[in-house]
């Protein structure tokens, strides 16, 4: 049992353990990889895919959406509800209701890609929390945007 090879192996094993311990000690002196969120935040890349949001028309401030419903039809999770009306005198419809069921959305981005007028984009909002899922079951994406129907 106590032949030379055996002892050599034990010694070699012992040194391999020391090597491992050297690595972990080295780790102590490297900069931590973590960021103390929420005091600091990691930079978000440009293509970050948050939940979708509605863009406003630059001129009017109304939603860009023309209520063509192609996003709703193409959404794999069927989580978009959109309706629209023609404001008086306008040629195209404008969305008067655009709801996202964020509890179902898979953040795939098909709706953003499919929109013919580029009305949708990804928001950069990620720290969303709530005590009830209902808060996200019907997110009104038109909120904060102007609307031609407001007075009606």
């Amino acid at each position: 049992m106590m032949d030379c090879c055996y002892i050599k192996e034990v010694v070699k094993g012992f040194f391999s353990l020391c090597t491992g311990m050297r690595v972990t000690m080295g780790n102590v002196f490297t900069r931590p990889a973590t960021i103390q969120w929420p005091r600091k935040a990691a930079p978000l890349p440009d293509r970050f895919r948050g939940h979708i949001m509605m863009l406003a028309n630059d001129k009017t401030g109304f939603p860009k959406c023309i209520a063509c419903t192609s996003c709703a039809r193409n959404c794999p999770s069927r989580c978009i509800t959109v309706t629209g009306k023609k404001p008086e005198g306008a040629k195209k419809k404008v969305a008067d209701r655009f709801e996202l069921d964020f509890t179902k959305c898979s953040l795939c981005g098909l709706c953003v890609e499919i929109c013919p007028v580029g009305a949708l984009d990804f928001s950069r909002d990620y720290a969303m929390a709530s005590y009830t899922r209902n808060d996200f079951a019907a997110m009104d994406l038109l909120q904060g945007l102007g609307s031609p129907f407001k007075d009606a």
Binding site: S16, T19, V23
Partner: peptide, 10 residues
Amino acid sequence: RYHDLVTGNV
């Protein structure tokens, strides 16, 4: 470092 920490470890 991966090999030092694990691969060689007895």
